[in-house]
Design a protein around this nucleic acid. Structure first.
Lengths: 245, 245
DNA sequence: AAGCTGTAAACTGTCAACAGTTGTCAATCC
DNA sequence: GGATTGACAACTGTTGACAGTTTACAGCTT
């Protein structure tokens, strides 16, 4: 499939090859088609996609800034590898940002936005009753996306979405499973309730709590959870040595 | 001055032209040498720095991802222009991040790090006694930088520093002035105290408060402060029309 | 046999040239 | 007179080629 064939034609869809290449490589990384640690050859990518090396190089530069690849001078570019501690840091940062966005949306919410949140919640409750985990997972993503969008802080949104992408670099399994739908649902309800009521501080805490629980649920599924996770005030150098992988 | 002459030679300093160009253009943007809204010509930049257009294009791609420039297909690159509302959003986001970093440092702090904070505070008190605003300003930056570094979350640091850079795109004056050193000092003391004591939640709130106050002090100096700032729950579209500039 | 050295292949960094697009401006038509 | 069209200039998008570096491997030395 040629890159240009993806979307129906429209003037605004005519992008530079750089953008197309960047999007495609990003997709391959996020789907795991290009696993973390993989070394990327410019010429190989260029040949594979039928373009010259220029656009590929530019795309790599963009992906580097986005944190998805690392570029070493005269050696090449590799898909970033994320260790256990770094993943925990990303989870925490993401949680803090999500809390901020919940708080911000609570301050700026409109009735229409609140209605959207309520709709999503209703659909999620339906999914639970039908025991449809896949549908619940999709709605879960939509619920989060709605808050991210409605918070209205576009820079926060960019940063948040970048971090979510980056987190895909850490392991791959488990990311699309929600074991305890009921617990997840209760947390969503708490978030939505606080936002709708305009209780900004409560919304922030509910958002952070939700992601912290999600983090713990996910990390608990990992092989031998390094004890460093629980220990507070732990030394940085020490943690580095305990890096997963 | 040639780009290569900046630093003493070391193997790790041998960077690609792309990196050198990106750094140089970033410097010109942050110093205001290239004002917001300025249109950048690849050929002109390339000629000016004595390189070809390739590295310049790659550097532009990096600066775009960093939020410092905007690239429009087939039209060119312009230094990003930030309006009033966007600046307020950036301040809020930065505050939230700084709070997160204070909180995180409070959890992970070491004695050596606490000693550094105390040293900075002492030096700042000296600067106040000497009524040396410039010195206080430098130390203020160092104090913030220390927290950013000691929080240990490297991704948070990257994001935070990127946002600080981006904020330079909004106006330029006033950014390097601190009117009320005593008030600023008290806030710093509150942050440091909470961190040293390990009171993470207090540290977070002190950090957020500090930046919120800084934001208000700065925004208050702007010409006709749009009333939108004070109004909570304000409509997004309306705010957009009130954009400064 | 283990380690070192030199050579060659492969790849990255950079450049200059070509192709395609956008914007300008003057001439033309209604 | 105003709007439209066409050509020209300037610039961006892309390409292929060349130079310098890294890496792997074969051959040599100890």
């Amino acid at each position: 499939m040629r890159l240009e064939d993806r979307k129906p034609f429209h003037a605004s869809n005519v992008q530079s090859l750089t953008v197309l290449v960047q999007r495609e490589v990003e997709r391959r990384i996020l789907t795991g088609e290009l696993p973390a640690g993989e070394r990327l050859s410019e010429s190989a990518l260029a040949a594979d996609m039928g373009v010259s090396r220029g656009p590929v190089r530019e795309a790599m530069r963009g992906l580097q800034q986005a944190g998805l690849v690392e570029i070493v001078a005269n050696k090449g570019v590799v898909v970033r590898k994320i260790g256990y501690d770094e993943a925990v840091d990303l989870y925490d940062l993401r949680g803090s940002l999500f809390g901020f966005m919940c708080e911000t949306m609570a301050r700026r919410r409109t009735d229409a936005q609140c209605a959207v949140l309520r709709d999503k919640l209703g659909a999620m409750a339906d999914a639970i009753r039908a025991d449809d985990k896949d549908r619940y997972y999709r709605l879960n993503i939509e619920f989060h996306a709605a808050i991210v969008e409605f918070c209205g802080n576009s820079r926060a949104r960019t940063v948040y979405e970048g971090i979510v992408k980056e987190m895909h670099l850490f392991r791959r399994r488990g990311l699309s499973r929600i074991e305890n739908m009921e617990a997840s649902m209760r947390e969503h309800e708490a978030i939505a309730e606080a936002i709708v009521a305009g209780r900004a501080e409560d919304a922030r805490e509910a958002g952070i709590t939700h992601l912290r629980n999600g983090r713990d649920r996910f990390l608990a599924t990992l092989d031998p959870a390094p004890e460093s996770l629980a220990a507070a005030g732990r030394d940085r150098a020490l943690r580095r040595t305990a890096t997963a992988e």
